[in-house]
Nucleic acid binder design. Structure first.
Lengths: 172, 172
DNA sequence: AAAAATAGTTAATTATATTAACTATTAACG
DNA sequence: CGTTAATAGTTAATATAATTAACTATTTTT
């Protein structure tokens, strides 16, 4: 019998909520022929300051595929595929880096910028609706919580590995 | 230029965090030949009271596949596949419902129960580690927040649809 | 100058899920 | 009642989203 715990409830709810958000996102963005992943790439190229990636990493130049792979936590090969759809649709463009010829910088096209801008109000509306009913201080604490969890997952990986090890030992 | 907003930061962080958790989960549960999804089914059959599904729905009898499909937000056909692995591994068993011959009730086997119990401490350890540094009241608010978001996504679907519509209109 | 690392791509493959069609059973209701 | 509709589960075919491995080109390290 597993006991009730607020901590596990939180983790499970985060999981559930993200799952739901992705389903809804795929449904919505399908209307413009995109997936949630491709949409996230557009938001990255629009330099959306609310993306966790931009809070962790400083960047001055336009993003490249390997940075997107890093942020979305997928392989570069996968990003190549995701990007090719956006290129075909004329929403983004690739430029060669002027100093390092391995690198290709990605930018939104005029059409890409227009799409992001036009859909911004409805995206913002959904987000506001979802998060209403809590005050600023609560929301701040909430964000801090999420960021603290995330940095534990990213930076203190060794500590997590020791937990993983427990599961392995148990499997013998 | 998209503006900084705490609300969007929260939504993005939830997304990012769940993504990371799933990656880690898949990595860990791979060691026992399972995926995160299959592991979630085990947790459902163990009646883990922290699963959002059990907070929404009352249930007295053992779960059936269609309820799992509902909770994981996937098709029944997918559940059939996920379950067949667990059946093969001898972690769960299917029973015919005594009153409704369409239904099949799912239960953990002795081995399934043992696996869940043995891994419980390490799972709990990770969760405690992730959520440490916040007090009970903060954690409570956090959970309320997540549950409020979720119920908006689930129950007040019409309101969300009007937002979706905005995106469609914009696409013309 | 050689070796290692980084960036991106391609092709083959794997994993994960869906859709559609089907059987069996039960519930709804005119 | 008996017909229709709804529910539960499965199967086969397919779609999708991602990975791995091998490769080229370029830059960095030593």
């Amino acid at each position: 019998m597993i006991e009730k715990s607020i901590e596990e409830s939180i983790v499970m709810s985060i999981f559930d909520l993200a799952n739901q958000l992705k389903k809804i996102g795929d449904e919505v963005y399908q209307k413009v022929g995109l997936t949630t992943q491709q949409w996230l790439i557009l938001l990255h190229l629009a330099n959306n300051p609310n993306l966790p990636f931009f809070k962790r990493e400083k960047h001055d130049k336009a993003l490249m595929a390997s940075e997107l792979a890093d942020s979305l936590n997928v392989t570069r090969a996968n990003i190549t595929n995701l990007i090719s759809v956006l290129l075909d649709k004329g929403l983004i463009k690739q430029y060669e880096d002027e100093f390092d010829r391995r690198k290709k910088r990605l930018r939104l096209t005029k059409e890409g910028i227009a799409l992001v801008n036009r859909t911004q109000p409805s995206r913002f509306g959904v987000i506001k609706y979802l998060t209403e009913g809590f005050n600023e201080s609560e929301k701040k604490t909430f964000l801090l919580f999420l960021e603290a969890c995330m940095s534990k997952l990213i930076n203190e990986d060794e500590k997590l590995k020791s937990f993983h090890q427990l599961l392995v030992d148990v499997n013998d």
